[in-house]
Nucleic acid binder design. Structure first.
Lengths: 259, 259
DNA sequence: TCCTGAGAGTTTGTATACAAAACGATAGGC
DNA sequence: GCCTATCGTTTTGTATACAAACTCTCAGGA
């Protein structure tokens, strides 16, 4: 046991708070109280995606507790969440390990994501039209809609300053915000699960198509704002498809030596 | 606190062990040790789907602990899982409540399920072909494949004896087993999330198309065994589509008075 | 040499206890 | 009368402690 504290504690350093938990995603905007259970969960998720915890690696609760400086209880709760998200595999009394990387499933995951995000865009457009016909505007809806503007503007700034590494988080926030506009918690939770895996995919290669894809987001929002359900779905589908193609192109480039 | 024990304890009685946890789904076949955390989770999930915990209802940990006769720790872990599955909404220091029912999302959920299950069937067929070309057969694969035969036979028995209420569980077990044949943990975990919601949909109306749909399962397996990827996907898609149509037909019948 | 089984040690599972935050009621001020 | 602040209660969050189960090692025998 003497070597157990040699486990790399380089993990949660700076990246800790850069979790993809994406603002007030799960409804209930505003409240900032953040239990350590959920923040530790985000950190572990990040570290899995970054490869700090490699696929197949055992996740020992005591070690994680020491590493993230909390007791085992928050660790266990985080592991349960990650297990349900499919990033971690657990067996009673036998412990948890990082799930195998979803590289093999890339094609299927993107296909599902296309359908899923088309649905969120469509539903968002539907709700936008409903909002327009309303007397009393839904304050929650307006809040999310406004947040999207902020995200889009921030993205423009980031691109102008060529801080492309920040684009990934903004991109996720955008897509989640659209899902939230749809008003459907089911779709949001599904998106969370899928985009977790897809983010994991992306972490294997570093770059992203980012910059030239960003303006497409404004097209998506335009269709949503106009209440054009079919068009919103279509534009979103195209956006995700291009994202997929870019991913596979990147993989093809990278893995010229693999096979 | 004197009245707190009047909470209906009728919940977990018999249905407890009829959880949709579906055999050795998460890999690691064989071991039977079942932590109370996961079994309590299954019970709560069941009770949510049954409507015993109504959408929007608060889930107080102490009450649940008393109701399911465990301490708060397993309850909390179960709630974290259910939260990640989208059946429960939680906010730190504010507690958990049952998520809104996914009825509004029925159409989208089925659409996603069609894509998802087509993918599992296709991948299963691919793997079946690979198995055939192998010297050493994958024992895990063989186990699952054999389990499917058992499920199909049991289903036939159940139909012959007209115990249609048992068909739902068998149906789920079948679809999960196919997902497992695909060898993809990502797809399995996605299916778990989606089918949880769809099961919730179904619980609103009681009946199912069950009997006449059951034989279709053998067609799916036939295509998989033959290694015909495209056909397997196609047959599975048709199967799920008919399931969807049946659902909406049922809804149309049932809700003639609603609007 | 290989298999089997018992034992110690490690790791997970759960209960209890306490700390911290949110919620609700009540009293005070405008 | 209504709003606001404060206190007490309730509920959740987390640490500690102990029980239960698994795993690995090693001795014994076929």
């Amino acid at each position: 046991m003497s070597d157990s504290d040699t486990t790399a504690d380089s993990s949660s350093d700076a990246s800790a708070e850069a979790s993809p938990s994406v603002g007030g995603l799960s409804g209930h905007a505003g409240t900032s109280t953040t239990s350590s259970s959920v923040s530790v969960g985000a950190q572990i998720r990040n570290d899995i995606i970054k490869g700090i915890h490699p696929p197949g690696g055992k996740l020992r609760e005591a070690a994680l507790a020491k590493q993230y400086a909390v007791s085992r209880i928050p660790i266990r709760e985080a592991l349960r969440s990650l297990e349900a998200e499919g990033l971690v595999e657990s067996r009673p009394y036998s412990g948890s390990m990082v799930a195998p990387s979803p590289v093999e499933d890339a094609e299927d995951l993107f296909e599902i994501r296309i359908v899923l995000e088309s649905a969120t865009a469509k539903r968002a457009a539907k709700r936008a039209a409903e909002q327009r016909n309303r007397e009393v505007p839904d304050s929650r809806w307006r809040g999310v809609r406004r947040e999207i503007n902020t995200i889009l503007d921030e993205g423009d700034d980031v691109i102008e300053q060529e801080r492309y590494e920040d684009l990934a988080v903004l991109n996720m926030r955008f897509h989640f915000a659209v899902a939230e506009l749809s008003g459907s918690l089911s779709l949001v939770s599904l998106l969370r699960q899928i985009s977790g895996k897809i983010e994991w995919l992306y972490s294997l290669n570093v770059t992203r198509r980012g910059p030239q894809a960003w303006p497409e987001h404004r097209d998506i929002i335009a269709a949503i704002d106009a209440g054009q359900q079919a068009k919103a779905a279509e534009v979103m589908a195209g956006h995700v498809r291009r994202s997929r193609d870019s991913y596979f192109a990147m993989m093809a480039e990278t893995s010229t030596q693999t096979d």
